[in-house]
Amino acid sequence: MLTIKNLHAQVEEKKILKGINLQVNAGEVHAIMGPNGSGKSSLASVLAGRQNFEVTEGSALLEDKDLLDLSPEDRAREGLFLAFQYPVEIPGVSNINFLKTALNEIRAYKGLQPLDARSFLALTRERQKLVEFDAQFTNRSLNEGFSGGEKKRNEIFQLAMLEPKLSILDETDSGLDIDALRIVSNGVNKLRSANNAFILITHYQRLLDYIVPDFVHVLYDGRIIRSGTKELALELEERGYDWLKEEVALQGQL
């Protein structure tokens, strides 16, 4: 589904990603972990098309389309979704109007008619349940005055509404209390299917107890330095990252 090859990116002159290779297949959940500043969120930003990142080398194919050639909106329309680490508050834009606009623009891109009001409402009601959202939230301004947990639940609600192929959850677990973490994770687990895939960016093993990944990758200094299964996350929880950093340093000397 997603094939990243030798991806290099920089912000201004600072090299952030230094050759990422990653293959994510339909039906899989991948976790990306790593110390602060290793490039995890940058990878998410580069894939979603954030402006200040410049790709200098490599490719990122979503199915057969190179995401890097597309505008942020076209990446979303092709089926990419980024759940933001810090969702933006936009007073004056109602949650519901925003979602309707997004959904219908995606549908138009695919050559589909806009959803009529009744079907849209029915879909909204159904997907709200996934994140235990009530109508009150959907009628409010986008994220305005939402608590950290509510914002993250809203990200997953949007994900549920837009039905992307590949979702990247950028530290969705940060700032969540136990209940919110459970709600968000349940939502994601219900949305998992053989036709979509997830990348979870996280610092903590805790999230992976709820959403069990098929693969775990460690990102360090702009590269993936270790890949494994969910047991790798447990090992990291226990030992930290220093042993991996040392291995990288040793390899560098050889």
């Binding site: 979603a48 098309g49 954030r50 402006q51 505008s71 942020p72 909106e73 990446r75 979303a76 329309r77 979704f81 980024l82 933001f84 969702p87 933006v88 936009i90 007073p91 004056g92 834009v93 109007n97 925003f98 606009t101 997004a102 959904l103 623009e105 995606i106 891109y109 301004s141 949007q158 837009l162």
Partner: peptide, 24 residues
């Protein structure tokens, strides 16, 4: 960027943000 990342074109996103600004 947030709006665009949800599939909303840049023009519509700008429109939404202007409406939002005028809203209050």
């Amino acid at each position: 960027f947030y709006l665009q990342s949800r599939g909303i074109s840049e023009a519509s996103a700008r429109g939404l943000l202007v409406q939002a600004f005028a809203f209050d």
